[in-house]
Amino acid sequence: MRLLALLQPLLALLFAPLLPGVINRTKAFFAGRRGPPLLQAYYDLGKLLRKGAVYSRTTTWLFRAGPLVTLAALGVALLLTPLGRLPAPLAFEGDLILFAYLLGLGRFCTVLAALDTGSSFEGMGASREMQFAAFAEPALLLGLAALALRGGGWSLSSLLSGLTEGLPGGGPALVAAAVLIVFLAENARLPVDDPNTHLELTMIHEVMVLDHGGVDFAFVQYGAALKLWILGALVVGIVLPLPPGSWGLRAAVSVAGLLGLAVVVGVIESCLARLRLLRVPQLLVGAGALAVLALLVALR
């Protein structure tokens, strides 16, 4: 089982770029378009990896280091991420704090790389990213704390694999809602950020990486896909019960769950408009309130 768990990060590395493809296909379906191919993200990555590089003369070494550190931090976080309710290869009590802070390290480097360009648009995106993350982090950790109160171990893996019953009710449902909001905000999805917008003024994540190109941009895009997978796996782990059976079957169900989540994101993006920027903190504080509520329910 432990050895097989090592295959999970591999699954993520292989299939993560599929998630944006599924989201875009779902959105195209709702809009009555044919949409880009499912594998579009792979084609983009392949093309970007074959390109040269253009750097702004304002930038320093930090701009070039940003995408590397961000991707590396996400790669290490991947080792801590359970695939749905399947335990991660690396699990210990306290790993959920490391998990949250590795995401923080990635964000910090992305933001600094954005500020390094001296562009006002990227500064705007950087400011928003840090603002929303400051509200999302307590919601995520308090939500996980609420799950920890149900007993059993409190490493990320044992939290999720400890949820043995079927679909969540009560506390875990509240946590699922909170983590879903964090998932949408951290991945710059609607209703927090519109990845399809063409107006730099309103972007958050996309505007921060405007100046990256070629190989660097491939790293950024691949990192974004990994982040979608990592936080998505938490949502799936809380929501989706696993059938008894071999590791292969359970892993297949979990991956299917992730793809299902991508469809749900596509549906959300097709039905919702972006919130005004001033409203986003309220949404995230709402997620925090849900997490606190889950804590209270668990105490009962």
């Binding site: 040269g52 750097y55 702004s56 003369r57 360009t117 001296g118």
Partner: peptide, 8 residues
């Protein structure tokens, strides 16, 4: 690998 101004 070229150098240019920041894209604004």
């Amino acid at each position: 690998v070229t150098v240019a101004g920041t894209w604004d």
